[in-house]
Amino acid sequence: MDHDANDALHPDTLAVHAGRADLEELGVHALPIDLSTTNPLTDIDSGGESYERLAGGGSLAEGASPVYQRLWNPTTARYEEALATLEGADAAVAFSSGMAAITAVIMAAAQEGKRHVVALRPIYGGTDYILAKQLLGTTTTYVTSVDEISAAITDETGIVIAETPANPTLELTSLDELVAAAGSVPLAIDNTFATPVLQQPLSHGAAFSIHSATKYIGGHGDVLGGIVATDDAWATRIRGIRALTGALSHPLASYLSHRGLSTLPLRVRQQQANAQALADALVAMPGVEKVMYPGLAECDPKGLVGTQMSGPGSMMAIDVGSFERAAHVAQSTKLFTHAVSLGGVDSLVQHPASLTHRPVAAEAKPNAGVLRLSIGLENADDLIADLRQALASA
């Protein structure tokens, strides 16, 4: 599917058909899974040439051997094409986890000796932690508003990293303002909460749109993965890092993620409708001090929902006042599973300060009374009733 053809199709149609162009030629209807770890070589010279090309991040040449699964796999390649289509990107690169994806992006940006990172908080705790610990040989300047980014950039800055909606407090940031503040420095956006159904950062000028595919893309809590949408030049560099560090998405994970894309628009819209109903109810519910959800006007002062994002999504956070109350509510729900992760068909509740954001610096932790809610496909009235009884007993 070329870009011109894609422009005429709705996202729901693209989600079903993207990355499947070769199925008719293969004589199959469902996505095939190729689990081969190694591939026959036609001869020594061409095999060596293909290895060198793929290990350097190049694409598979026509008629060439893929050589080895760590370098290239057809199941993963179809999934990458599909995600790139939904993001409006030249290419996508799939990884074994979301953290492997963000790691490769940071490494790629630092390859030319620019080892300084500017990171806008709040961001996912894992990203915050890997930057703070300098595990990749980078240094980081943290900022808390777009207005601080330009001043934080130096000649050594290789990348600006941000997340909108932010994890876990759902703060919204203008992508246009982020791109302007970053200037010539590439901007990486964690797009996990929004998904490509609701937001396409590359269309605003971001260099990378990063997803933990474990979340909404897989959608069923049974696959671990990450994926980066970007342009061809960055994709080549990132694929080379992936090939040499061994972080390729396993074919089965790629298959499950690609299959998840087919229903992604439907799931996102229904979960979003449930979340809006829940947020409206929580605002007036006893025991809730604050509701953080992009679908509430007070949480979107710049009107980014409806412009930058086509909808508010299905993630939210509530502040119930104290750690003790938060712990009680998390343990007292019947339909919300107390667990990490998000974006699946079932609803989850999590206490970020003691889980995903536990390792980060004190100034980056959310309030102890904050609970993060991932809203699933259950009936909204049942979810409302479940939270009401949990709050009432706290």
Rank of each mutant, 00 (worst) to 15 (best):
D7T: 14
P11W: 01
V16W: 12
E24H: 15
S36L: 10
T38H: 07
D45K: 11
L54H: 01
S59V: 14
Y68M: 15
A77S: 08
G88L: 00
V105F: 06
G113T: 09
H116M: 04
G126W: 05
T127V: 09
A132K: 12
Y142G: 12
S150P: 01
T157E: 10
S174D: 02
L175C: 13
D176H: 14
A182K: 08
G183A: 06
L187K: 06
D190W: 11
L202S: 08
F208K: 01
A213L: 05
G219N: 04
D222F: 09
L224M: 14
T230R: 03
A235D: 03
T236L: 11
R239K: 05
I241W: 00
R242T: 00
L266S: 11
R269T: 12
M285A: 03
E298V: 13
C299A: 06
S314L: 09
M316N: 01
M316L: 13
I318N: 01
E324L: 14
E324P: 11
R325M: 04
H328M: 02
L335M: 08
T337D: 10
A339D: 04
S347N: 10
H351I: 12
A362W: 07
N367R: 13
A368F: 11
R372H: 10
D382Y: 06
A392G: 15
A392T: 10
